[in-house]
Design a binder for these strands. Structure first.
Length: 236
DNA sequence: CTAGCCTTGACG
DNA sequence: CGTCAAGGCTAG
């Protein structure tokens, strides 16, 4: 439970409320939810909920309904790195250390300082920031199944979540870059705040707030949240 | 099956 | 070399 890679990670898992052990599949989660998400996707697990698919998931009850747990994993924003790896060269997720590392931690701390907001909202913003940094040409090459994620909280099975046009690839499969785009950062002129066209169904944030981490430009926001520009990275 | 610990590989 | 995240391993 207290296996911690980083003493700084004193926050709670957005899925079950356990102590986070680091960034896993796109956001700060605990070790158990990381493993659960891994097993679920890896083995194409199919769960069913014996209740109303609204089971409460917390540290003590997370074992009771894997269905609702997995839904919550998706709802809070857990994603395969594959989606992000598409934006860089193929192979291991190289996006993670850039977006998920100290950069985001710093961002989150700044958010908390600036706005006094808590973990749940932070996760949403973190997720929002991710989505807003994908360039449109690359976004179009993300598999439609992932792109057309159903509205929250529509249920989704692991296989639906993960299925590709040629059948489910193995977990460790690296996706070739279908665009032929160079494995280089995207110039900010091409970086489009995607949530304007494609609202993030999993964060419930549908305003037009968008921050381009490629150029530190903060787009007009209809949100009252003040997103600081700390740690925004410019690659151009 | 769950969850904690370990190993591996990428990156700065 | 240190850090980080993904995946492997295994005790319970």
């Amino acid at each position: 439970m207290d296996y911690n890679y980083d003493e700084d990670l004193d926050e709670l898992c957005p899925v079950c409320g356990d102590k986070v052990s680091g960034y896993h599949y796109g956001l700060l989660t605990c070790e158990s939810c990381k493993g659960f998400f891994k097993r679920t996707v890896q083995n194409n697990k199919r769960y069913t909920c014996t209740e109303n698919q609204t089971c409460k998931i917390d540290q003590t009850q997370r074992k009771r309904c894997p269905y609702c747990r997995f839904q919550k994993c998706l709802n809070v924003g857990m994603r395969l790195s594959q989606l992000f790896a598409l934006t860089y060269e193929e192979g291991r997720n190289k996006f993670g250390p850039i977006i998920s590392g100290s950069c985001l931690k710093q961002q989150k701390k700044a958010l908390i300082r600036a706005n006094g907001i808590k973990m749940e909202i932070c996760s949403s913003i973190v997720q929002l920031l991710r989505l807003t940094t994908l360039s449109l040409p690359i976004y179009h090459n993300i598999h439609p199944t992932v792109k057309n994620l159903p509205p929250n909280p529509a249920p989704m099975t692991p296989i639906e979540y993960y299925r590709g046009p040629y059948g489910p690839p193995p977990m460790t499969m690296t996706m070739p870059n279908p665009t032929g785009l160079p494995a280089t950062p995207i110039p900010h002129s091409q970086a489009v705040p995607l949530n304007r066209e494609y609202p993030d169904h999993y964060t419930n944030i549908h305003d037009s707030t968008a921050v381009c981490i490629m150029c530190t430009r903060t787009y007009v926001s209809s949100s009252s949240l003040d997103i600081p520009e700390v740690s925004l990275k410019c690659y151009s």
